[in-house]
Computed example of a mutant assay.
Amino acid sequence: MGTREDAAARGEGAGDDGFIELEGVEKVFRVRRRRAGRRRREVREVRAVDGISFRVPRGQMVGYIGPNGAGKSTTIKMLTGVLTPSGGRIRVAGVDPSRERMRLARRIGVVFGQRTTLWWDLPLRDSYALARRLYRVPEARWRANLERCVDLLELDGLLDVPVRQLSLGQRMRGDIAAALLHDPEVLYLDEPTIGLDVISKARVRSFLRRVNTESGVTVLLTTHDLTDIEQLCDRVMVIDHGRLVYDGALEGLHRAGGGERTLVVDLAREVPPVRVEGARTVRVEGPRQWLAFPAAASAAPLVARIAAEYPLVDLSVREPDIEDVIARMYARGAAGARGDAGPDGAQAPPVVS
């Protein structure tokens, strides 16, 4: 059983807990391939999404994470109506995405970090004008939304620049603005901070927090960057091999995976390995040292102790890789669920809730 915080994170008890709803959703692809020495191609089924069920209440910001090939993007494509589920049931704001895709399109915004929705050879201003016509947004509302996005995302000096001339960080901010000009109720973000520098990431995160808290936009965020999840989301879901293996608070995910975060400390001079309660020094290179500590623990007490006892100049916290967290979850699940084998004979990971 999960904690009260986990239940709240999952939206249990919320008044509108079925705003986004998936029940036993599956997606199976048929892949044809030719084996050496055979004339006919074999047909193989690939189960990209395997019986996923969850609910997201209106206005919640949820992290949806997992390793490459886990089924994240496939889930989002089904939620937007781009793909039709092979089985199960999906509702977004009471609408079946695959049956009423055009109706739903006016209520959602989508940002894919590695693919732009902007017109490559046009300046941002023209791309936004075309988006207004596509979504049939009243001009007054469109102008108000554009001014707000331009101000918060610092796009004022970029509106007349062709998209192809924008840096990755500038283009990403432009894509996020384009996804919000028609006042969507739901925003799907697929790797929105991939490849961005620290300043651009901070700017994007700050904007997304304001959109969520001030406008009540429901956000489903997929990312490999756990810092995105930590700073934006109260709830996180982990998918792996098409199955939901965790749904709850980020702290609970760290406890389930048993991972460690790393505190990178820059000192004014070389000193012996730092010794503080709650952490262990794993690497030393001149005045820089790396300290590992439990991922579920707060870094603040460690920072305070180090600052009081050592000549601290700078520091940063590095999150564990999500692949490492999931691998640890599998290892623990296999040890604690003997005999609970999946259809292929492998041990099934527990769903932590």
Rank of each mutant, 00 (worst) to 15 (best):
A296R: 01
V271S: 07
E277M: 01
V82M: 11
D234A: 13
S86D: 07
P272G: 02
A249E: 13
I108P: 14
R47A: 08
V325Q: 02
G195A: 03
V313K: 14
D183R: 10
R143E: 15
V62N: 00
N68M: 00
R38P: 04
T193D: 03
L166V: 10
E147A: 15
A300G: 07
V276D: 04
G13I: 00
R41K: 03
T117F: 02
R288Y: 11
F29K: 05
P311F: 10
L152T: 13
L189I: 09
D240F: 07
D96C: 09
V28Y: 08
W142Y: 14
R332L: 09
V274N: 05
V284F: 03
A129R: 14
G278N: 07
D314H: 15
Q60I: 00
R125M: 08
G24V: 02
V313E: 15
E270V: 09
D197Y: 04
F112Q: 12
P273K: 01
G18N: 04
R34G: 02
A14T: 00
R115G: 06
D234S: 14
V25A: 04
G66I: 00
A177M: 13
E23W: 04
T84P: 10
P320E: 08
R34H: 03
R255G: 06
G339W: 12
A36G: 04
D151M: 13
R141M: 12
R106C: 07
R209C: 07
G59F: 12
V284D: 00
A177C: 15
E285I: 05
I326W: 05
G113P: 09
S298E: 12
I194M: 06
L253M: 12
L124P: 09
V325T: 06
A9V: 03
R115I: 06
V325G: 02
L315F: 15
V313T: 13
G109V: 07
D197M: 04
T74E: 04
R235T: 10
A297P: 09
G339A: 08
P273D: 04
E319Y: 15
P97S: 06
M329K: 00
V313D: 11
T223E: 01
A129S: 11
L291E: 07
